[in-house]
Amino acid sequence: MLKQGRQWADLSIARTTPALLGLFSLVILVAHHLQNSQKFSIRQAAWYAKPLPTFVDAITLVRQSLWSSTFSMSHSPSDMVKIPRALLERLTDTLGYAA
């Protein structure tokens, strides 16, 4: 019996699984490349110390790298709103983990 909807069909699983594995691999490779040139912070809770970065830390590093290059350029001076760099970094850090 073939279940329909919500990716339960065998063909849709066969398409989705390799795509997710490829996306996961791409994020890990980009994060590995970025960790040599950028500060790579591992977010930890007070009650749980992580010895190594997790996928969440890796995808956050990739997101922050993409967003910092996107937010640093303005095509028109009228579109620019100046905010302190510390606030921008805090926003990208928070959004990187929340998204």
Rank of each mutant, 00 (worst) to 15 (best):
R6D: 12
A58E: 10
L87P: 03
T16F: 00
L91I: 15
M1R: 12
R90S: 07
V81K: 05
R15D: 05
M73T: 14
H33V: 02
L29C: 04
P51C: 06
W47T: 13
S68E: 11
Q4A: 04
L34D: 05
V27P: 01
L21E: 11
L11Q: 05
S72M: 10
D57P: 02
A46R: 12
R85Q: 04
L91H: 06
L95I: 09
T16A: 08
S72Y: 11
L20C: 03
S12L: 05
E89Q: 14
T54I: 03
R6C: 00
T92S: 08
D57C: 00
D79V: 02
D93P: 00
T92K: 09
M73K: 14
D10Y: 10
S78Y: 04
M1N: 14
Y48E: 14
A45P: 00
A98Y: 03
A99G: 15
A49H: 12
L29F: 03
S72V: 04
V27H: 08
D10G: 07
T94A: 12
T17N: 13
V62S: 08
A31D: 14
E89K: 10
Q38T: 05
L2G: 04
L34A: 12
Q4N: 07
P18G: 04
Q38M: 06
I59Y: 03
H32K: 12
Q7E: 01
L87V: 11
K82A: 09
L52S: 13
Q7W: 00
W67G: 01
I28Q: 14
A19L: 13
M1F: 11
S41I: 12
L66D: 10
D79K: 07
W8F: 15
S65G: 09
L29V: 03
Q38R: 07
Q64A: 07
T94P: 00
Q35V: 04
S78N: 11
Y97D: 02
H33G: 09
F55H: 02
F55C: 07
V27Q: 02
S72D: 12
Q7D: 05
Q4P: 00
P53F: 02
Q38D: 13
W8Q: 13
V81Y: 09
L61I: 06
P84M: 09
A14S: 11
S74C: 03
V62Q: 02
P51S: 06
K82T: 15
M73W: 10
S69E: 11
L91R: 05
Y48Q: 03
Y48H: 15
K39V: 08
S65K: 03
V27F: 09
L66V: 12
W47I: 15
T16N: 03
F40P: 00
F71T: 10
A98M: 14
G22L: 10
L66F: 02
L95C: 10
T92L: 13
T54W: 01
W8R: 09
W8V: 00
S78F: 07
P53S: 06
Q4M: 01
Y97A: 06
P51Q: 13
G22P: 01
T70W: 08
F40C: 03
I28L: 11
S68Y: 03
T70M: 13
